[in-house]
Design a protein around this nucleic acid. Structure first.
Length: 589
DNA sequence: CGCTGCTGCGCG
DNA sequence: AAAGCGCGCAGCAGCG
């Protein structure tokens, strides 16, 4: 296989930019121009010039692979170049890959400058590109022109270097998923455009109404905590320190003054409505000429390997149901004759934790067909029923088990548990602090498989002082927590938002990380199985896969999804998974 | 004005 | 000794 790194330089300004317009409308903007292409091949081939002037046959066709740093961007530029006839339709490789995704997979910084700085100690000068804002290639003087060409060819060379050095250890399955992620994003999702417009207008009205209850709206930012404090003191009362939903102090303030001074309620309504409206507006702009909304998903966005949201509108945190009269999920809607099949994994993380902790009693109950919460009740001798009927036989115990399973496996303490339990059970289980103390202690006494895992991880942390902590996951993937130190309590560095961030490291955190990472690997494995069968995965969210298909095929697709998503990967033998699927024309939860 | 850090809030 | 974790985006505030 001959590898070619490709890199585009494109015109951008404040309006004509990928950030504001999204990739589709950016390339279609009248000001848009892909003015420079650099190519660097491992056969010695190099090119630097306008994309129209390259003899594309030299780098296309059988036996060629194109690599890009941020391939979803470049691939869309290429798509546009072919569509508009600027380059031949045959300008296509056998395979294309993204080196930014690959860097993220290995836990290196995602940006090119960050990655080559970390790996090779190089410091590419990004200011050259930053200077190109609002400027056109034709307008550059000779010196600036040369500087830009140097910068651009360097980028392509570095991209190729990254690929050459790292790709031998980059699993094929991850490569396929990375490429799929980009394609999925620009195919996008079918939208109810009229419904979206109606939603934007409706929520706009609610925002206006909320603002009328904010006395400082003319003089200060609507959500300014300072303005709120001044207003409170003006009427002789103390403002709450925090406006958070779960702040007890704030709740007390609301009870006492909320009726007379509806400011905090108005601020909350304003904030939530405004965020919802902004999101809908971003989604509106992302709708392409074919009526589908392009979106971004970041491959390996989290250091655990999870995909994360990207490109303006995050599709991984859509409200679950109706919010302020708008059901945003339902606005993602198939055209007649088409449908979504949505399949969810049932409680994937506690099941994975049971496997990682080698919790034989719990796994045994799972194998016998019990759900996780019921299995927990049985393993703890809290319930002896022979069928999976705990939920209706003893609803209170069920909620107790649900809160325990979801919270206590990661070392949650009594204080936190009193806050988490109601949240996890929809308010059905609200232990006092004293009760929580007993529950936590009892959990740790009885669930020795989990506490044993904590103990082993605690030892690993200690042994990793002054080093990197690495753990090989069941899938074979290695996770790394960098630069562990014991100074001021154990801490380490993990990649967060594209940079290394130091945070405390303890067994509960590692337990959660490897559980989340393994759950991610399970979903990734299942996605690959579905892709191999030719299914069209149009979205996925941590424990859920969405396939779009013809209505006539929906039942068969549903059966396949349930079968594959109930199957444990070969590297997690003995784990029992559960999956539930729905056929639905509009996206829903 | 852009950048950074923080809070709040949506999801898993 | 004890410690939930993982994201992205909007908006505010401080800095230069």
């Amino acid at each position: 296989m001959r590898n070619y790194a490709l890199d585009f330089e494109t015109y951008y300004d404040a309006v004509c930019s990928v950030v504001t317009l999204g990739i589709h409308h950016y390339t279609r903007h009248t000001e848009f121009d892909a003015y420079l292409l650099t190519v660097c091949g491992d056969d010695g081939f190099e090119y630097c010039g306008r994309p129209e002037d390259l003899d594309w046959s030299l780098i296309s066709g059988e036996g060629t692979r194109w690599v890009h740093h941020n391939a979803s961007f470049d691939a869309h530029i290429l798509y546009w170049l072919r569509e508009t006839g600027k380059i031949p339709v045959t300008a296509e490789p056998d395979e294309w890959r993204c080196t930014a995704d690959m860097c993220a997979y290995f836990g290196y910084p995602r940006s090119l400058a960050g990655a080559v700085g970390y790996l090779f100690g190089l410091k590419p000068d990004k200011s050259v590109r930053d200077k190109m804002k609002n400027r056109r290639f034709e307008d550059l003087n000779a010196a600036d022109n040369l500087e830009l060409l140097r910068y651009a060819i360097d980028d392509a060379r570095l991209c190729l270097k990254l690929w050459t050095e790292l790709s031998p250890r980059y699993p094929w399955a991850e490569q396929v998923l990375s490429t799929h992620t980009a394609m999925m994003g620009w195919d996008g999702l079918p939208m109810d455009v009229d419904g979206l417009d109606a939603g934007i207008s409706h929520v706009g009205d609610l925002i206006w109404n909320a603002e009328q209850n904010i006395p400082w709206r003319e003089d200060s930012p609507t959500l300014s905590p300072k303005a709120l404090a001044i207003e409170c003191r003006n009427v002789g009362i103390e403002p709450p320190k925090s406006l958070a939903k779960d702040s007890e102090e704030c709740a007390a303030w609301e009870d006492k003054y909320g009726e007379q001074y509806p400011w905090i309620n108005a601020m909350r309504t304003y904030r939530r409505c405004n965020a919802l409206k902004k999101k809908m507006e971003t989604m509106r702009i992302r709708i392409k000429d074919d009526g589908r909304m392009a979106f971004g998903l970041k491959f390996f966005g989290g250091h655990t390997g999870r995909w994360s949201g990207d490109s303006g509108a995050n599709l991984q945190n859509l409200p679950r149901g109706e919010m302020f009269g708008v059901n945003l999920r339902n606005l993602i809607r198939c055209k007649p004759g088409r449908t979504f099949v949505v399949c969810d994994l049932a409680q994937i993380e506690p099941r994975v934790l049971a496997w990682l902790a080698n919790d034989e009693k719990l796994l045994e109950s799972l194998r016998n067909g019990f759900g996780v919460y019921t299995a927990f009740a049985r393993a703890n001798n809290l319930w002896q029923g022979e069928t999976d009927s705990l939920k209706k036989d003893d609803a209170a115990l069920y909620q107790f088990c649900k809160a325990s399973v979801l919270g206590l496996g990661y070392m949650v303490g009594p204080n936190k548990f009193t806050l988490m339990a109601p949240q996890l059970t929809g308010g059905a289980f609200t232990p006092t602090l004293a009760e929580a103390e007993t529950i936590v202690a009892e959990y740790r006494r009885r669930n020795t498989a989990v506490t044993g895992l904590w103990q082993r991880l605690e030892n690993v942390i200690r042994r990793s002082a002054m080093k990197d902590l690495t753990i090989e996951l069941p899938s074979g993937r290695t996770m790394t927590w960098r630069k562990v130190t014991s100074i001021g309590g154990y801490s380490c560095e993990t990649m967060r938002g594209g940079r290394y961030v130091r945070s405390k490291v303890y067994a509960g955190m590692i337990t959660e990380n490897i559980t989340q990472a393994t759950a991610r690997d399970v979903l990734a494995w299942q996605m690959l199985e579905l892709l191999k069968l030719g299914h069209d995965i149009v979205l996925h969210v941590h424990d859920e896969i969405v396939i779009e298909c013809d209505e006539s095929a929906a039942e068969a697709v549903k059966a396949t999804m349930i079968e594959i998503m109930s199957t444990t990967p070969p590297w997690l033998p003995g784990l029992v998974l559960g999956a539930e699927a729905d056929i639905t024309r509009h996206y829903t939860k």
